[in-house]
Amino acid sequence: TTYKLIANGKTLKGETTTEAVDAETAERVFKEYAKKNGVDGEWTYDDATKTFTVTE
């Protein structure tokens, strides 16, 4: 399944996707990606669109 991340960070803005077996796995991947890019904010997830959003 393809999951999408929308990053609304102070230093990183944009979108990326990952293939994962479930939302929990995708969330781990995206949180690691955000951490590597210095983004720390509020996370939301929309199951209907398989989209995570992080906003600083």
Results as ranks from 00 to 15, higher is better:
residue 44 T to C: 08
residue 23 A to T: 08
residue 42 E to L: 12
residue 44 T to D: 08
residue 11 T to L: 11
residue 16 T to M: 14
residue 16 T to G: 04
residue 5 L to V: 03
residue 30 F to M: 03
residue 22 D to A: 03
residue 6 I to K: 07
residue 3 Y to N: 02
residue 55 T to P: 01
residue 30 F to E: 00
residue 8 N to P: 05
residue 49 T to H: 05
residue 28 R to I: 10
residue 32 E to W: 06
residue 43 W to S: 00
residue 4 K to R: 12
residue 49 T to F: 05
residue 30 F to L: 05
residue 8 N to D: 09
residue 42 E to C: 12
residue 47 D to I: 09
residue 6 I to G: 02
residue 38 G to R: 06
residue 15 E to W: 14
residue 33 Y to K: 03
residue 52 F to E: 00
residue 26 A to E: 00
residue 9 G to T: 15
residue 34 A to G: 03
residue 11 T to E: 09
residue 30 F to Y: 02
residue 34 A to N: 02
residue 19 E to H: 13
residue 45 Y to S: 00
residue 37 N to W: 15
residue 41 G to V: 02
residue 36 K to T: 09
residue 24 E to G: 09
residue 1 T to P: 09
residue 15 E to G: 07
residue 33 Y to N: 03
residue 15 E to F: 12
residue 27 E to C: 14
residue 49 T to A: 06
residue 8 N to R: 11
residue 34 A to W: 08
residue 48 A to P: 07
residue 1 T to H: 14
residue 19 E to A: 07
residue 43 W to G: 00
residue 10 K to C: 14
residue 25 T to P: 01
residue 5 L to S: 01
residue 22 D to C: 05
residue 19 E to C: 14
residue 4 K to C: 07
residue 44 T to F: 11
residue 7 A to N: 05
residue 51 T to A: 03
residue 45 Y to K: 01
residue 51 T to M: 04
residue 46 D to P: 00
residue 54 V to C: 05
residue 20 A to G: 03
residue 54 V to S: 01
residue 34 A to P: 00
residue 6 I to V: 11
residue 14 G to D: 08
residue 5 L to G: 01
residue 21 V to P: 15
residue 18 T to R: 05
residue 51 T to R: 03
residue 17 T to W: 14
residue 13 K to H: 11
residue 19 E to N: 12
residue 9 G to I: 09
residue 7 A to E: 04
residue 2 T to A: 05
residue 39 V to Q: 05
residue 28 R to H: 08
residue 18 T to I: 15
residue 49 T to K: 06
residue 37 N to A: 12
residue 46 D to K: 03
residue 42 E to Q: 13
residue 52 F to W: 06
residue 55 T to C: 07
residue 50 K to N: 07
residue 33 Y to S: 02
residue 15 E to Y: 13
residue 55 T to S: 08
residue 42 E to V: 15
residue 46 D to V: 05
residue 9 G to N: 06
residue 42 E to W: 11
residue 43 W to K: 00
residue 43 W to C: 00
residue 49 T to Y: 04
residue 17 T to Y: 15
residue 48 A to R: 11
residue 32 E to M: 08
residue 33 Y to M: 07
residue 45 Y to P: 00
residue 20 A to S: 06
residue 26 A to T: 00
residue 26 A to Q: 01
residue 17 T to S: 11
residue 22 D to F: 03
residue 36 K to M: 12
residue 25 T to S: 13
residue 21 V to K: 13
residue 19 E to Y: 15
residue 10 K to Y: 10
residue 48 A to D: 11
